[in-house]
Design a binder for these strands. Sequence first.
DNA 1: TACTGGTGCGCG
DNA 2: AAAGCGCGCACCAGTA
Length: 572
Amino acid sequence: MAEAPLWIVLGRVDGAPVAALLDSAGEEQERVSLSDDRLPSWVADREAAGPRWVWSDATPWYTRLLAAGVRVGRCHDLRLCHAILRDSALVVEAPSLRAAAEWDAAPVAEVEETATLFALDDAGGATGAPDGLDETLEEFRRQRAALAEASDPGRLRLLLAAESAGALIAAELQAAGLPWDAAAHDRILTEILGERPAGGGLPARMQDAADRVRRELGDPAASLDSQPKLLRSLHRAGVLVESTSRWELAQHDHPVVAPLIEYKKLSRLLSANGWAWVDEWVHDGRFRPVYVPGGVVTGRWASSGGGALQIPRQLRGAVRSDPGWVLVVADVAQLEPRVLAAMARDEKLADAARGRDLYSGIVDSGAIDTRQHAKVALLGAMYGATTGESGRLVPRLRRAYPRAMALVDDAARVGEEGGVVSTWLGRSSPAPSSGWRDSQLRASEAEASGADETRARRWARDRGRFTRNFVVQGTAAEWALSWLADLRGRLAELPPVTEAQTSPRSGPVFEARPHLAFFLHDEIIVHTPEDRVDVVVDAVRDAAASAGRLLFGSFPIDFPLDLKVSRTAVKD
DNA sequence: TACTGGTGCGCG
DNA sequence: AAAGCGCGCACCAGTA
């Protein structure tokens, strides 16, 4: 009997899906012609042997499978992995990847209407990654070769697996959706803004705030939504601000300030997450945002549409589990400094991080006097603060935690010099732009003007702050992906619940089992049947511990979770 | 009418 | 108008 294929590569030939089965040596064993209709059941059959599915881009392939009720365990997302390998400083064989520019493809958004998914024609103008079978196989070979030659293939393999798992999770999060109670959302809006206006007017409380602002400005026609006009009105009223930002307004003692800040708050809520947002984004009790894995240079996810990663805390009460289900809401306390301690092998910082609150740990160690100062100093160290309270406090941190601080200081120096830095698993920062390099070059010439030098120095420092933060933010993203991927595996092993407990709005794959419902950098929400909550909580915690070991081995760093079980996602 | 850039603010 | 990183989105104004 033939060995079960390790990889199954999916691609299209003359528009129809074809599968190429590869053995452990990467040799093709067999080729199977399929159709879009037959693909899901064929994949489901093959999934039993646990292959890694290789495809151009998880979004189009996996979204269709999920809609047909088929889940897979592992994949290799060529588009995402291409971007990592192409830029990674650990990869020696990058030129051939760079030459394959057709794989530098932007993510394509998948439409939501599941019924029409299979009818979609890729020729609809979207420019995604190539999905022809030959091109797909060729790119997979290139990536395998690049990996084999890499200076630390083990780390990169972890990164590619985590990134690809993220691609699966993003599609699954969208398919399952975040349980969203439109009626609760409406109650929150009504309480804060006033009744939803029937016509074109403003909600009552917003109108009231606007009236008070105009009265205090002595300008009944003042425009509150146009920054230049508002600025002029403020100046006429004697409020000499340079901008209309909340921060600057709050510095001034004038009766217009309070109502104006209130108006801006209400206006923001209405325009970003008001009734129009609910109408557009919440359907059938679910908010289904479009996640963009790897959408940020550091490896963090981005989102597109719906402002999925910017849901205001005020509206967390609208996130409500289905009847008989609950939410497990968990986030990591101070993820980035913990990751920094582990990367730098800084045992003193790791000691301060032990237990719950890292900032208090720093205070207890005697390095800094108050929790607030410890927080400001540490953020300043990771972001590159040079002035203000933060800038003043950083040197104390440097004395107390020299290893950790040396890591970020080195990253900043490399960035200022035009170099490339990398995360723990090997995602590298982009090289400086040609404009940046030109500016540094010009400033170093004998005839450089003072302005040239000033600009070059500013740009160098800007880039230094970017690379300083890149290593920490990017490694934190790797930890979070590992946590998610591990948790996803644990949840998939739980037995499904009985039909009476199913929640069809989560889609065919997730209606009968605990599933991830939300992810935001260092926070996850799991939607689970009530009677599974204990095992889910254990899974969330075990996955966090496991992610720490996967990245940092036996280095003694804790990743404690703030975890709550509740019908809503409210945070305190 | 469609675009781009600036501003401001939500999230981590 | 943040200091000090990374994003997305709404809105307005200016321009093509």
